[in-house]
């Protein structure tokens, strides 16, 4: 499974038919130099911490995953059948590459890996996510985060 054309039907049509809003303009924030980057990962895999209520379809909120949370306590509540989860079952970094980010911090390629990463529920209308996304953005800025890697599912 590589390009969209390689995805078997009927899943391909499901993905193709997903409603994508149009944006008239693309906002740009000037990135800081690499070694000043304080980087958080935002996933759309509906990741939660074990014991939390699973996220439901079209839920617009987000969850926080602190660095202190073990891999064993990170669960994926995005249970769509349109994507594979066996990779994540073996290695959390397939969806949330927080170990790789820590390596980049250790090797001086970035300034800091964030202490907390975040997850929204995928396949939710992007427009419906706006309020919470902006709220999360302000929250991350308050924590000193200046750079975000967005990881889909």
């Amino acid at each position: 499974m590589v390009r969209l054309i390689d995805v078997p039907e009927p899943e391909r049509t499901v993905i193709t038919d997903l409603q994508c809003p149009t944006y008239n303009q693309t906002p740009f924030t000037t990135p800081v130099p690499a070694r000043q980057r304080h980087v958080a990962i935002v996933s759309t895999a509906g990741l939660i911490v074990r014991g939390e209520r699973p996220m439901l379809s079209s839920e617009t909120g987000y969850r926080s995953i602190a660095a202190s949370v073990n891999d064993n306590d990170i669960l994926c509540s995005h249970v769509s059948t349109n994507f594979d989860r066996t990779g994540f079952q073996q290695d959390t970094n397939v969806l949330l590459p927080r170990d790789r980010l820590l390596e980049l911090e250790r090797d001086g390629h970035i300034g800091k890996a964030a202490d907390t990463h975040y997850a929204f529920m995928g396949a939710t209308s992007p427009v419906a996510l706006e309020d919470k996304a902006r709220e999360l953005g302000r929250s991350m800025l308050a924590l000193g985060v200046n750079t975000v890697v967005l990881a889909p599912v």
Partner: peptide, 14 residues
């Protein structure tokens, strides 16, 4: 969509 909103709030995204 998240990239649009976060970038608009002042975060650089990729």
């Amino acid at each position: 969509g998240l990239a649009h909103y976060l970038e608009d709030e002042g975060l650089a995204t990729t």
